[in-house]
């Protein structure tokens, strides 16, 4: 064909990306979020939260908070995983995570000790989910050993499985897997990195006290889970 492939007319027709202004796209995006939510189509909403632990990714379904992810997990990877495992109908919708974000901010500022936000634990199955339920019984400022958690969860020998449940906790910080230590008092692993775990324990003032090594923790333990056998 004799039509020139590159000229000003064709270029201006093709330059679609360059021509859309950001303000218009932002308002169209927020209209899409509102309409999708109103029709019950918004399966997963997410936002990021800048914190002392880096940029956290928070995701929720209509049922509750689904995911808290550390920067080291790779936000793109986490979103792809949520799209595959939960639903690809997933949009950036910060307002739908206001409660969770505020509670995490308050917690990190030492103005909150308990989370009230509703959780959607669909990403945890079977024994891992049982373990998460027991993690929530470890008080603020207290710690427990993997072994003690295993016992409390009804499978005293499943210490490694407790470690896996902690490592795959979909909602770290809110479900306090950082309060679980090795029996010898060393920190063990953490999805957000060992520094984040140390930071959270220091925040709760659990780590600097000598009593930590005894697992009992400074405050009197309230659950049997805190008493190592």
């Amino acid at each position: 064909m004799s039509t020139p492939r590159h000229d000003r007319l064709v270029d201006s027709l093709c330059s679609a990306e360059a021509a859309a202004d950001g303000g218009t796209m932002a308002s169209l995006h927020s209209r899409l979020v509102d309409q999708a939510a109103a029709e019950g189509l918004l399966d997963v909403a997410y936002r990021t939260l800048d914190s002392t632990l880096g940029s956290l990714l928070l995701a929720a379904t209509p049922a509750g908070l689904l995911r808290v992810a550390y920067p080291s997990e790779g936000h793109d990877r986490v979103l792809a995983d949520l799209a595959a495992r939960v639903s690809p109908r997933l949009l950036h919708a910060p307002a739908r995570l206001d409660v969770a974000a505020r509670e995490i901010e308050e917690y990190l500022a030492r103005r909150r000790r308990h989370f009230d936000v509703t959780l959607d634990l669909q990403l945890a199955h079977g024994f891992r989910r049982v373990v998460l339920a027991h993690l929530r019984e470890i008080d603020y400022g207290a710690t427990a050993s993997y072994k003690a958690v295993a016992a409390a969860a009804g499978r005293p020998k499943a210490v490694r499985a407790v470690g896996t449940a902690c490592a795959t906790n979909p909602v770290p910080i809110v479900v306090p897997c950082h309060r679980v230590l090795r029996s010898d008092g060393t920190l063990g692993g953490y999805a957000g990195g060992i520094e984040a775990k140390r930071g959270l324990l220091a925040l709760e003032s659990a780590i600097e006290r000598p009593a930590t090594r005894e697992l009992g923790s400074p405050t009197p333990p309230t659950g049997e889970i805190l008493t190592e056998s």
């Binding site: 679609a16 859309a20 169209l28 995006h29 979103l79 792809a80 799209a83 595959a84």
Partner: peptide, 17 residues
């Protein structure tokens, strides 16, 4: 599987507009 729809909006939203 499918990418998150957020990426679809970011990649194709301006062209479709």
């Amino acid at each position: 599987g499918l990418p998150a729809f957020e990426l679809v909006v970011a990649e194709h939203g301006p062209v479709v507009l």
